[in-house]
């Protein structure tokens, strides 16, 4: 995991324009934004921005585009609250406020030369997608790569065309599963952890990157542990209530950690104690 980086705007958002809007599923969409004039477009996979809709409010949204492309900033967002529903109404040319990027990132340096197993559930694939772009771009530097992705239903699964194209290209193993199938679904049915037996990786040289609902992450950690992947080689991305993103507001604390600053990506053994305490 790599630490946070200085951000010039701890309080005031920059105003940016929407370059592209794409509907992903019935409740999820992707916005491509012009990066702010100052600060450039660079971000590290796993980081997030605070997006502000005029007069409505602000929400933390992970970056889900290609970190090496240098184009617009890509955010895949689920419309579930007042702010995200307002974000869903934005179209190309509209403006919004943006602060960031904030937070820690996935351990792409430490993972070099190792097998990389990405396990995600639901919207949890969005913060991991930049990792997939990075791994593909630097394919030779990594060992085996497996993506295990679980969604509620085929209609809820994100980026399916892209994932299948990557699978067809043979660059990585893509295992997909849903809780509820439909007649068109020819991939797996069942919990994402049921895919572990089919994932091709060497436990002694694997790094696990996990993002999804907390229960799913707990079950996933147990699957890794069963196979001998130590907690020191597991990384999780956590969600907490965030207002400021810079450690001032206190909302996102988990034990000694501020999820906004010290996370959202944590090495599992470093957060385990508090992650496992109920209502911590």
């Amino acid at each position: 995991m790599e630490g946070p980086r200085a951000c010039p705007t701890p309080v005031k958002p920059a105003v940016v324009r929407v370059r592209d809007y794409r509907r992903e599923t019935h409740d999820t969409f992707t916005l491509v934004l012009d990066p702010p004039a100052t600060g450039g477009a660079a971000f590290r996979p796993g980081q997030f921005n605070m997006l502000y809709v005029f007069g409505v409010g602000e929400a933390p949204i992970s970056l889900s585009g290609d970190p090496g492309e240098g184009g617009g900033w890509v955010h895949t967002i689920r419309a579930v609250g007042a702010v995200t529903r307002a974000l869903a109404r934005l179209r190309p040319g509209d403006v919004l406020g943006l602060r960031g990027p904030y937070g820690s990132s996935w351990p792409l340096e430490n993972a070099r030369g190792r097998d990389v197993v990405l396990v995600s559930g639901g919207i949890g694939l969005a913060p991991l997608r930049p990792v997939l772009y990075h791994l593909r771009r630097h394919r030779a530097e990594y060992g085996k790569i497996a993506l295990l992705y679980g969604a509620r239903s085929p209609a809820d699964a994100l980026y399916l065309d892209e994932l299948r194209a990557w699978r067809a290209a043979g660059e990585l193993q893509v295992l997909l599963t849903v809780d509820r199938g439909d007649p068109s679904w020819t991939e797996s049915l069942g919990l994402v952890t049921a895919l572990f037996d089919r994932a091709d990786f060497a436990p002694d040289r694997a790094v696990g990157l996990i993002c999804g609902p907390e229960i799913m992450m707990r079950f996933t950690q147990r699957e890794f542990a069963k196979r001998g992947v130590a907690d020191e080689r597991l990384y999780v991305s956590l969600e907490r209530n965030m207002h400021c993103a810079v450690g001032f507001c206190g909302h996102c604390q988990l034990g000694p950690s501020f999820v906004c600053m010290d996370g959202p990506v944590f090495r599992y053994d470093r957060i385990r104690t508090f992650f496992e305490i109920r209502e911590a």
Partner: peptide, 11 residues
């Protein structure tokens, strides 16, 4: 266990 987790409708 997996069935029970699915019943929670996590996503």
């Amino acid at each position: 266990a997996a069935t029970r987790v699915q019943l929670l409708d996590l996503y």
